[in-house]
Amino acid sequence: MSAALFIEQVFNGLQFGVMLFLMSAGLTLIFGVMGLINLAHGALYMVGAFAAAAVSAATGSFLLALMGALAASAVAGVLVEVIVIRRLYARDHLDQVLATFALILIFSEGTRWVFGSFPLYLDVPAALAGPVMLPFGIAYPAYRLAIIGIGLVVAAALFFLIAGTRVGMRIRAGESDREMIGALGVNISALYTGVFALGAALAGFAGALVGAIQSVQVGMGEPVLILAFVTIVIGGIGSIRGAFVGALLVGLTDTLGRVLLPILFSAVMEPSAAATVGGALASMAIYILMALVLLFKPTGLYGGAA
């Protein structure tokens, strides 16, 4: 394999990882602050993608579509938090899993009801449609490069929000002692709704950005949700930094595994068998990675003590 192809795959892995980070950051934040496991996070990702596709079809503007995705998923997040999620904070994880599983059913079938079963398409904005020439003669799609850039900017903004602002201070305080900050006069209820809406907006944003590369369809959120789970298990639940490192690890392992493993196996077996074995192993690579991390650090790379 040429170096150019390899670098291109590294970029693909980064792009995938950055998207996973947007999903995982919300999940891990919601878990860290509220102690809630949210299976419906993937549904919010889908809401973002559908909102973007609908706005884009109506106005033709990709920027408006992104805004629409952010707004729709944040509003959906607030509604879901106020109506259902709020009642689950004091419950055990089993109840949280079931209630958010129920939300997935409602969101997925509701979306199918409104938009139908056929996938929608969201076009890449014209300005970013072509390839960009990188050093060493590598042509890489501008849109994917833009996603990596946007993802890194959002990640930096999120780190700043959590570590450097007054809101972030409250969020961190909520993570360590929710009763104390309530006693100090912070409106816990509003803080929780805000954190949930932030997580939802990040998921919806990711959905809209990815929607332009893949098709927008019902059920698109759950595979990403499960990858995001793998990501935060690897990174350590509750840690934004862990989510970032985990997301890049998962993105790169998955993308490079699919390219490199079949080539690796072709050194020792015939090409068709190597493609089969390598492909099958590549589809399991991130789970094996997760199992390895768990063997050595059961709470993840950046997780606290068990």
Binding site: F31, I226, F229, V233, I237, Y287, L295, G300
Partner: peptide, 19 residues
């Protein structure tokens, strides 16, 4: 492997193994 962890980790890991 999964039982080395507990709580929410266990949920996510069993889900991931299934996947």
């Amino acid at each position: 492997l999964s039982l080395r962890t507990s709580g929410v980790y266990f949920i996510m890991i069993t889900l991931a193994f299934g996947q």
